[in-house]
Amino acid sequence: MRKADIINQISEKTGIPKVDVLVTLETLFKEVKESLAQGENIYIRGFGSFITKKRAAKIGRNIKKNVAVEIPEHYIPAFKPAKEFVQEIKARNQKRNPQ
Score class of each variant (00 low, 15 high):
Lys83Gly: 05
Ala78Gly: 13
Ile76Pro: 05
Asn97Pro: 01
Glu70Ile: 10
Glu26Phe: 09
Asn8Ala: 15
Ser49Glu: 10
Pro77Gly: 12
Phe50Arg: 12
Arg2Val: 14
Ser35Gln: 05
Gln38Val: 02
Asp5Phe: 10
Phe50Trp: 11
Ile42Glu: 01
Arg2Tyr: 14
Ala56Tyr: 03
Thr24Asn: 09
Phe29Asn: 08
Ile6Asn: 10
Ile51Gly: 13
Asn93Lys: 04
Lys18Asn: 06
Ser11Phe: 13
Asn97Ser: 05
Phe47Asp: 06
Pro17Cys: 06
Phe47Glu: 00
Phe47Thr: 01
Ile6Met: 14
Pro98Glu: 11
Ala82Pro: 01
Lys33His: 07
Tyr43Thr: 04
Ser49Pro: 12
Lys90Asp: 07
Lys64Gly: 03
Val86Trp: 03
Lys13Ala: 15
Glu88Ala: 06
Glu26Met: 13
Asn93His: 01
Lys13Asn: 12
Ile51Thr: 13
Gly15Met: 04
Arg92Tyr: 05
Val69Ile: 14
Ala37Asp: 02
Lys83His: 03
Phe85His: 02
Thr27Pro: 10
Lys95Ile: 08
Gln38Trp: 01
Val86Lys: 05
Arg96Glu: 03
Phe50Pro: 07
Lys30His: 09
Gln99Ala: 15
Ile44Tyr: 05
Val86Pro: 02
Ile42Ala: 01
Arg92Ser: 00
Arg96Trp: 09
Leu28Lys: 06
Gln9Lys: 15
Gly15Phe: 14
Ile42Trp: 02
Ile59Trp: 12
Pro72Cys: 06
Pro98Val: 05
Glu12Ile: 13
Asp20Thr: 09
Lys53Val: 12
Ile71His: 09
Ile44Lys: 00
Ser49Val: 06
Ala37Cys: 05
Thr24Val: 15
Tyr75Trp: 07
Tyr43Glu: 03
Glu70Lys: 15
Val19Met: 11
Ala91Gly: 08
Gly15Glu: 08
Thr14Trp: 13
Thr24Ala: 14
Glu88Cys: 04
Ala82Arg: 01
Ala37Arg: 02
Phe85Gly: 00
Arg45Tyr: 00
Leu28Cys: 09
Lys65Trp: 03
Phe47Lys: 00
Phe50Thr: 10
Ala82Asp: 11
Lys90Asn: 04
Val67Gly: 08
Ile42Leu: 10
Thr14Leu: 12
Tyr43Ala: 04
Val67Gln: 15
Phe79Val: 07
Lys18Tyr: 08
Pro81Thr: 02
Ile6His: 11
Ile10Tyr: 14
Ile76Val: 12
Thr14Asn: 13
Val23Glu: 15
Ala57Tyr: 06
Val86Ile: 09
Ile44Asp: 07
Phe29Arg: 11
Arg2Ala: 13
Glu70Pro: 06
Lys3Ile: 14
Val32Ile: 14
Glu88Phe: 03
Thr14Met: 08
Arg92Asn: 06
Gln9Tyr: 14
Glu84Tyr: 03
Pro98Thr: 07
Pro81Glu: 00
Gly48Pro: 03
Val21Glu: 10
